[in-house]
Design a protein around this nucleic acid. Sequence first.
DNA 1: ATTTCAGGTGGTACTTTATGTCAACTGGTT
DNA 2: AACCAGTTGACATAAAGTACCACCTGAAAT
Lengths: 155, 155
Amino acid sequence: MNSDLKQASSEKFRRLEAGCRASGLSLTHQRRALLHCLAQRSDHPTADQLYDELKSDVGGLSRTTVYRILDTFVRVGLVSKISSPQAKARFDADMGRHHHIVCEQCGKVADLFDSDFNLRGLPENNSSGFTVHNYEITFNGLCPLCQKIGKENES
Amino acid sequence: MNSDLKQASSEKFRRLEAGCRASGLSLTHQRRALLHCLAQRSDHPTADQLYDELKSDVGGLSRTTVYRILDTFVRVGLVSKISSPQAKARFDADMGRHHHIVCEQCGKVADLFDSDFNLRGLPENNSSGFTVHNYEITFNGLCPLCQKIGKENES
DNA sequence: ATTTCAGGTGGTACTTTATGTCAACTGGTT
DNA sequence: AACCAGTTGACATAAAGTACCACCTGAAAT
C-alpha cells in the first residue's frame, strides 16, 4: 500500500520531470527537489511550506528560489495555483480535472475527484466581456479534525 | 440609468444595514462607510482598496479597523471572501448565488450571473471526510482590456 | 574531458497583506 | 446625562510575495 503510493508519486515525478524538459527548463537540483515534494504531497502546500520542508535537505536553498520556481512551473503549465478564499497561494501538481474542498476552520485543502460536478461547458458571451479559458470549483466545509474539535488549528 | 444604479445600491445598503442590526452589531460610522462602499462597488475590492477609498472621507479611519470590520462582516455572513488564485482577500457583499471570472493577466474579478452553471447538489460522502457546506465556481480568462493589450496591468 | 554562457540561484532588502495588543473612545441603552 | 460593552486608532509585528544583482551551474558544443 505504502509502496504503491511511493510508486505512484515517483511515476508522477517522472512525468513532471519530462514536462520540465519539454518546456526547455534545465533540471536543476532545486527544481527536482520541488518536483519531488509536489509529486509526493497531496495537501496543496504553500510556497513557504515547501521551502520549510526542503531547506534542510537542499543545502543553501533560498526562499526566493522556491517562489521563483513555483512561478515558472505555473507559467509553463506544469503546476497550478489553486483558488481559495485564503490570502496565500497554494500549489497543485495534478493538472487533471478535479475539485477542492477547503476547511473553513483550519484552511486545509483536500482533493475531490468526482466528475459528476464537472461543468459541461464554459460561459461564452458573458456581460462582462471576459473570455473564459477554464474553471475551478471550490467547496467549503469542515475537515474531519475540525468537525470534532470546535476550535482553531493551523494548516 | 445612473439613478437606477444609485437606487439599487442604496437599497442594497439598507439591506446590509438591517443585517448588521440583526446580528447585534452597532452601526458605527466606520461600518456604515464600509457598507456604503461594498453596496456601490461590484469589483470585489481588497481590504486595502477599501481603506484607500475611505480614508479621506472618514477622518482618522484606521487600516486595522477596515480589516477588522471586514472580518466581522464575513463572520456574521453579511459579506463573503471570494475564492481566487490571488494571494489576497477580496470581498463581495452580494450573498446570492453567482460566480466569478478572474482575469489571468491583471487580476480583475467580474461577476457571472448564470444559473446554468449552478450545481445541483453538494458532495455528500467524499473520501477526505470533509462535510461540505457550500461552493464557489471561479472561472479564469482575460478581461476586455487585457484581451486588447497583451501586457500586464494592475487591478 | 573542458570550455562556455544563457539561464538559474542565493542573499539581502523591500513591499504588500494581514494580525496582535491595548489604551482611549462611542453607540445605544438606561 | 451617565454608563459601559463593544469598538476603534495607533503602533508593532508577522506572514506572504517581489526586486535586484553578483555569482554559479546545467547542458550543449568542442
